[in-house]
Structures are given as C-alpha cells and as structure tokens.
Amino acid sequence: MIEFVRNVRLWFAPGRIREDGATPDYRFSLANERTFLAWLRTALALIGGGFAVDQFLPDLRWGWRVGLALGLLGAGVLCSLRAVNHWVRCERAMRRGEDLPVSRFPALLSIVIAIVAVAMVMVVLFGWEG
C-alpha cells in the first residue's frame, strides 16, 4: 500500500523519475509506452462495453442492465488506473536496471471478463423474457 502511494506521487512528479538510475535505450521506453496505451485501449473498450450493454440490451431488466454496465465501467476505471501505475513501475525498474515488475492484474481481468461473458450468455439464453 505504501508502495502504491509512493507510485502515485511519481505520477505527478515528472522530474523525480529522471533522478533515478540511468536513461534506458529509448526503444525500451517506447515499448513501455505502447503497452501503457494498449491497456488504456482495453479500458476504453470496457467503457464502450458498458455503454453497449446499456444501449443495445433494452429488453433486459433494469437491475441487470445497470449492474452489468456499471461493472464494466468500474473495470474500465481500474484498468486505466493500473495502466499508469504499471507504466511508472516499469519505467523506474528499467532506469534502475531491475527486473520488470510482475502483476496479477491480467489474470484477474481475464477471469472477470470470462465471468461477465458467461453471465451475458446466461441472460440471453434464459433471462430474456424476464
């Protein structure tokens, strides 16, 4: 948790990250940036999915529809938060010459998406008339 707060301080302090270690090969930094953008796109796709559930499943009961939409939107927020946090951690690890940080987040996100997908299939198969 303390580590996370320290990382959050780094998000807003552009100069501080440059004080750490040596500048890595710019290609590594750009690769890290592209990974960050890919996660941001994932977040945007989840937000778009939230809108899609709300807009294109009008026959669904209100609770289900709003619940699914808010779940997807929440996942989008988490995903973008994690994107910037992971970017900072990777950038700092590269400057210090340490191993890149490992993360449980991709596994968690894929499990959540799988659960949402199964829930959608169930809803479409059985809950349509409800």
Binding site: L10, W11, F12, A13, P14, I17, T23, Y26, S29, L30, E33, F36, L40, A43, S80, L81, A83, V84, W87, V88, E91
Partner: peptide, 11 residues
C-alpha cells in the same frame, strides 16, 4: 520518453 504528467493525464 513519455513524461508521467502526460501518462497521468491520458489515464
């Protein structure tokens, strides 16, 4: 490299 300020802004 991308600055943390811009990364935070985008997120």
């Amino acid at each position: 490299a991308l600055t943390p300020k811009h990364a935070t802004a985008a997120a």
